[in-house]
Amino acid sequence: MPRGEARWAWLLSDGGEPRNWMLVLAPLLGWHDDGWAGVGWGLFAAVFTAVLPTLILRFGERRQYWGDRHVRRRQDRIVAAPGVMASVITGTGLLHGLEAPAEVTSLVMAMLAVLLALLVITFFWKVSVHSAVASGALVILTSVFGPWMLALTPLVALIGWSRIRLRCHTVGQVTVGALIGAAVSAPVFDLLG
């Protein structure tokens, strides 16, 4: 792969990490639902959906439970999943119990539903979490802010391209990830939001 292309692929892949979507999306939806107080709830949600999962993945990487923060091997993802899921489940419970704004709680519930779907698939096949979260974020943004958010569709496609280009996933794994992210996120978010 040409050097410039590899650089762009890494930038898109790292920028499009699931944690980054949650760091932006949770406070944004919090603001939309409840102003500055909602931003605080969104940041609280981001702790459980982005910050703690990142720390868990880094801890596992340092202990050599898996190779890197992207947890590329399918078998390693099954080992990493319980810690990440525990963080998201805890956050979901706290948001619900503390009566956080509906859009923030619905976002985290939608993320949890996507993670559960991906975990089931991961027992048999590797699927792109990057693509699933990016497409899930896109459908939620479209649900909240309207169809003009579909202008972000090329970004979701570019994140998928980066994962393929870096040989982290196949076209099929990226496509299935994107389809699952959208198909699971939309109904869960709309039902609960």
Rank of each mutant, 00 (worst) to 15 (best):
P2L: 15
P2S: 14
R3C: 08
A6S: 07
R7F: 15
W8I: 14
W10Q: 10
L11K: 05
L11V: 09
L12S: 04
L12M: 06
P18S: 11
P18V: 03
R19W: 08
R19C: 07
W21H: 05
W21V: 01
M22G: 09
V24M: 11
V24N: 09
L25S: 09
A26R: 02
P27S: 11
P27D: 09
G30A: 12
G35D: 15
G35W: 13
G38K: 00
V39N: 10
V39K: 02
G40Q: 04
W41H: 03
W41L: 05
F48L: 13
V51I: 15
P53D: 06
L55Q: 11
I56R: 04
F59D: 15
G60L: 11
E61H: 07
E61Q: 14
Q64N: 13
Q64C: 07
Y65V: 15
G67A: 15
H70G: 08
R72M: 10
Q75W: 06
D76R: 00
R77E: 10
R77P: 07
I78P: 05
A80R: 01
V84A: 08
M85Y: 10
A86W: 01
I89F: 12
T92W: 08
L94S: 05
H96G: 11
H96N: 09
A100D: 07
T105F: 12
L107D: 06
A110C: 10
M111T: 14
M111C: 11
A113R: 05
L115W: 03
L118S: 01
L119F: 14
I121T: 12
F123P: 03
F124I: 11
W125P: 06
W125D: 13
S128L: 02
V129N: 01
V129Q: 02
A132G: 04
A132R: 01
A132Y: 00
A132V: 02
V133D: 05
A134I: 03
A137N: 05
A137L: 01
L138W: 06
L138Y: 04
I140D: 09
L141H: 08
T142E: 15
V144T: 12
V144H: 05
G146M: 12
P147F: 14
L150H: 06
L150N: 11
P154A: 13
V156A: 09
A157Y: 08
L158Y: 08
L158K: 05
L158F: 08
G160R: 00
G160Y: 00
R163Q: 00
R163V: 00
I164W: 10
C168S: 14
G172Q: 12
Q173A: 08
Q173G: 03
V174A: 00
V176P: 04
I180G: 01
A182F: 03
A182N: 06
V184L: 11
V184F: 06
V188S: 03
L192T: 06
